[in-house]
C-alpha cells in the first residue's frame, strides 16, 4: 500500500472522528458554542473534500472546498461581530 494513500486515509478517519466531536460541541445550548462547533466542522469538511478530491482526482472538489472555507469563516466572523454588538 502506498504510504501517501495510507496517510490520506488516516487523515480521513481522523477528520470523521473530529466531525463527530464538533457535532457534540454544536449541541451545547449556548450560541457561542454552536459558532465554535460550526467553524470547526467547516474546517473538517473542507479538509475532507480536499483529501477525497486528491485521492480520486476530482477537480471541482477543490473549488467547493475553497468556497466553503472562505464563506464559512467569513460568515462565522460576521455572526460573531453581530452577536457582540447585539447584547
Amino acid at each position: 500500500m502506498d504510504i501517501l494513500l495510507f496517510g490520506e486515509y488516516f487523515l480521513i478517519i481522523a477528520l470523521i472522528v473530529f466531525s463527530f466531536a464538533t457535532l457534540r460541541i454544536i449541541t451545547y445550548k449556548s450560541t457561542s458554542m454552536g459558532l465554535i462547533g460550526t467553524s470547526s466542522f467547516t474546517l473538517a469538511l473542507t479538509l475532507l473534500l480536499l483529501t477525497v478530491g486528491t485521492i480520486h482526482n476530482i477537480g471541482f472538489f477543490k473549488d467547493i472546498a475553497l468556497a466553503l472555507l472562505l464563506l464559512g469563516i467569513v460568515g462565522t466572523i460576521a455572526y460573531a461581530a453581530v452577536m457582540r454588538r447585539a447584547k
Partner: peptide, 12 residues
C-alpha cells in the same frame, strides 16, 4: 476567527 468567537462570547 478565534478572537472574534472569544470576543463575542465575552460580550454576549
Amino acid at each position: 476567527l478565534a478572537h472574534a468567537l472569544a470576543n463575542a462570547y465575552f460580550h454576549g
